[in-house]
Design a binder for these strands. Sequence first.
DNA 1: AATCTATATCGGTGATTGCCGATATGGATG
DNA 2: CATCCATATCGGCAATCACCGATATAGATT
Lengths: 114, 114
Amino acid sequence: MDEKIKTFKALSDKNRLRILKLLEAKPLCVCELNAILEIAQSSTSQHLKVLKDVGLIKDKKQSYWVNYYLAQNVKDNFIREQLKIIAKSFNDDAVIKKDNRMVRKINRKSLCCK
Amino acid sequence: MDEKIKTFKALSDKNRLRILKLLEAKPLCVCELNAILEIAQSSTSQHLKVLKDVGLIKDKKQSYWVNYYLAQNVKDNFIREQLKIIAKSFNDDAVIKKDNRMVRKINRKSLCCK
DNA sequence: AATCTATATCGGTGATTGCCGATATGGATG
DNA sequence: CATCCATATCGGCAATCACCGATATAGATT
C-alpha cells in the first residue's frame, strides 16, 4: 500500500508529469529536461529521483550524460497501468503540447556543453 | 492537467484509499467510516470532501445520514480508469483486509446514535 | 594524474497538507 | 418552533514537499 501511495505522490506533480510525457518522445538527459522545464537543475534531478524510486523511469549512463527513459516491460501491474493511463492522458493539454514540440527540436549539444 | 493532478493528490493518502476500498463493499455514512478509520470526525469529513471534489465518490442525504458511495458510470476516462485500478489493487494489504472484515460487521445504529 | 562537465546531494525557505478540538449548519424530530 | 444529531467548517499546529543556490561526485578527456 505504501509503495502505491508513493507512486500516486510521484504522479501528483506537474513537472514530474511533464517529464513522463517528454520521455514518451525519446530518452532524455537531465540538461535537456531542464531546458524544457525551466527550473533549477537540482530540482529536475530531484524529480527524476522520485520517478525512478517508484519504478516509473530508469536511467542509463552514456558517456557524459545520464539518459532517462520510461520503464519498459514493467512487471508491477500498478505501475504498468499508471504508465498506460498517462500515455493516454494529457495529450490535449497546452503545456504538454508545447513541451512535445520543443522536445522534437531539441539539440543536446547546444544545450548541455558549457 | 490540474484536475488530474488533483486526482492523483486525492489518491496519495492512506486514509482516503482506505475510504475508497471500504466503499467498494457498500455505501457508508461518515460515522461508519469514522469508526473504522479511527481518526477525528472532522478529518474523515475533510477526506470525503477531497474525494468528492474530484469525482471519485458521490453522496446522498438520507434521513439523519449522508451516505457516501463510489461514483458509478463515470464519464471521465481518467477517473474511471483510476477507480478500476484501485478496485484491482490493495486487496492483499493487511489494513485493507482488516477494514473489509470490519465493514461487513458494522452496525450503523450502534455506532452513530449518541 | 589533473581537469572538465553533467549530474547528484545538501541546507534552508515558503507553501501545502493532514491532523485535531471547537464550533457552525441544517435537516429531522418532538 | 425548539431541540437533537450527523456532518461540515474553522483555526491552529506539525510534518512534508517543491524550490533554489551552493557544493560534492564521478566518469570522460587531456
